[in-house]
Amino acid sequence: MSSPAYRPPARAAIEAKGWIGANKWLLIRRAAQLGFLALFLTGPLLGTWIAKGTLAASLTLGVLPLTDPLMALQSLLAGHVMETTALIGVAIVVAAYAVLGGRTFCSFVCPVNMVADLAVWLRRTLGIKEGLTVDRRLRLWLLAGVLIGSVASGAIVWEFVNPVTMLHRGLVYGGLFTWGAALATTAAVFLFDLGVARHGWCGHLCPVGAFYGLIGEKSVVRVTAVGRDACDNCMDCFTVCPERQVIAPALRGKDKGVGPVILSRDCTNCGRCIDVCTKDVFRFGTRFRNSPSDALGVGADAGPADTIARAS
């Protein structure tokens, strides 16, 4: 039997909800990613400074310090205690992502996400199959390696290769546009994701994302498959999800008495599953409404699932 013809995963959703409705969270995410980038670019381009620095450490409006927590931890392990400014920045970042979901960083802030999404889109268009199978826990081993490496070398080792800060620095300081490390690293991630492993970098290897995932282990804001009874198994959510292993326990958990909230730390809160679902199974919620009874039954008193989802 030949494989079914290529079908963009959002097609059904576009027919059901319109283009905007089927791409709502994608558009919000792109706006957020570009918006955060713009905050760093108004200074060099227009002369009005909002955010200075990079995603490694920044100062916004001269008062708000933000510091990448993994960076601070590596620095500490390498034998340096950062100054108060940077440590306050770490505290703010950790607090925010511990509530909003650690990997929300990956889907709403990190510029590499756009590169990875482009690779995955091209993959779908060109019909490139899975490719190399990489264990998703490899990122945790890589993270452990980075931390041990920092102790051993006495340097913030991940910064020698980190595509996240390489790309961001390249964009903000312009180094991306002269042939150099920023472009090479970004292109390497793109090629790896395109030709070697699907969602290879962000979904399997990136220790920065893995660390944010650990920060958001118990985070409050979660995607919940609250309307799972309406699911018609079209598999579109699995197709678009960058961490597809997170969906099944919540979506298919009814018989096992598992609640509808996606609790995996790997979920990036990207909301793409919400976009592509024609049955409005998913919406953003909190981890606290997670008893099996919180899922809306079809035709339950709580009203049709889509009303709730739209209201969110």
């Binding site: 450490a57 620095s75 950062m82 006495g154 910064e159």
Partner: peptide
């Protein structure tokens, strides 16, 4: 290299 996060501030 243990202290600098390469933020460029």
């Amino acid at each position: 290299l243990a202290a600098c996060v390469r933020c460029g501030l």
